[in-house]
């Protein structure tokens, strides 16, 4: 699909964290790729490691985290090998993040305009932007971006403080803040889940349109399967710090290959009036994880091999990858390269 390779490629990412209980193996060989112009959702429940993955991409891991293996290649450069200064040039410019909570992610003491122009002025600047002049071009650029995220009366919103805006408007401002730096990759952490359904729906559809027209790539981090279905082209299901399954969005909701994905989908209450019973047990203990397959203790289809050998992520069917002993590789010749 893309001869130059993916925009972002995470290979075999392993992260450990020092905790009171001991070394927590929170990410174990995570593999993920995002191609240009593609929207990918990373789906999983609390504690599955999806937020840590996002933080690792942005180089914002907590101090007790340690990267033990793997690489995160962005346009061919390994982000894990870059200096803090080089990362600084990428974070917020080439890779931007939309934060989850519109009520706390904006600085309450600056107006929307001040926060936006600050980002524009900071582009390409090394030092702080205090005292730098806001030229008419900069102002124009900010108003343009506010118009792009469909804020009614951008001129008025420009001079307002975050508290004077509704939740939906604040979420739009957060999107504008992420877009104003013209990033190539957007990371959206639980975007819209703090909003009411009607507003959430509105914003997600608008963002989908923006992404299509702007040729952006997006990584959605979400626990909401319905949202993932609405916005993404491809879905990664994460469990216990590992990728359990990857498939095109259209297909995974029809049929899931991994028993965890099956259990997760079955637990979602349906408008058809059916609702599963949930999955037995709880998320694995990261300090002493199950030896091979991390889902094995909760899996209804567990076999002898599941406790002995870790299932690798293999292409079981065309474009469908799964890490489960129930599914062998499509070509039966070990794992090939991932094709998005």
């Amino acid at each position: 699909m893309n001869p130059t390779g993916p925009l972002l490629a995470i290979q075999d990412l392993g992260i450990h964290m020092r905790t009171y209980e001991g070394r927590a193996r929170v990410l174990n060989g995570v593999r993920l790729a995002i191609h240009e112009g593609e929207t990918v959702a990373l789906v999983g429940e609390t504690g599955c490691g999806k937020s840590i993955t996002a933080k690792a991409i942005l180089g914002l891991l907590p101090p007790n985290a340690e990267i033990v293996s793997g690489s995160i290649a962005f346009k061919g450069r390994d982000l894990l090998r870059l200096s803090e200064e080089e990362l600084h040039g990428i974070r917020g410019r080439q890779i931007a993040m939309i934060f989850q909570d519109p009520s706390t992610a904006l600085n309450p003491v600056f107006t929307v305009g001040e926060q936006l122009t600050d980002v524009v002025l900071w582009q390409g600047a090394r030092s702080a932007t205090i005292g730098r002049r806001v030229t008419p071009e900069v102002r124009q650029r900010c108003l343009e971006i506010l118009r792009l995220v469909r804020i009614p009366d951008p001129e008025g919103a420009f001079g307002r403080y975050p508290v004077e805006l509704s939740g939906g408007m604040r979420q739009r401002v957060l999107i504008a803040l992420a877009l104003v730096g013209r990033p190539e990759l957007l990371i959206a952490d639980e975007l819209g889940t703090a909003l009411d359904v009607s507003v959430q729906d509105q914003i997600l559809l608008e963002l989908r349109e923006l992404v299509r027209t702007g040729g952006l790539s997006v990584l959605y981090i979400t626990h909401n399967l319905g949202v993932a279905r609405l916005v993404s082209d491809r879905i990664y299901v994460m469990y216990g710090g590992e990728i359990a399954e990857m498939a095109p969005a259209a297909e995974i909701f029809r049929r899931q290959l991994h028993p965890y994905s099956q259990g997760l989908l079955a637990a979602v209450p349906r408008l058809t009036g059916t609702m599963g019973e949930g999955i037995e047990g709880r998320i694995p203990d990261y300090v002493n994880p199950p030896p091979a397959c991390r889902f094995e203790p909760r899996c209804p289809f567990r076999m002898e091999v599941c406790r002995l050998q870790r299932p690798l992520l293999v292409e079981a069917e065309r474009d469908r990858w799964v890490a489960c002993h129930l599914h062998g590789s499509r070509e039966d010749s070990g794992s090939g390269e991932e094709s998005g």
Partner: peptide, 24 residues
């Protein structure tokens, strides 16, 4: 109409998409 669904059967059950303007 704004309910995010996870299956085609459900999508068939909800009204045609209506996007409300503004917020509550």
């Amino acid at each position: 109409s704004a309910i995010p669904t996870v299956s085609d059967e459900e999508s068939a059950l909800i009204p045609e998409k209506i996007t409300l303007g503004g917020e509550i």
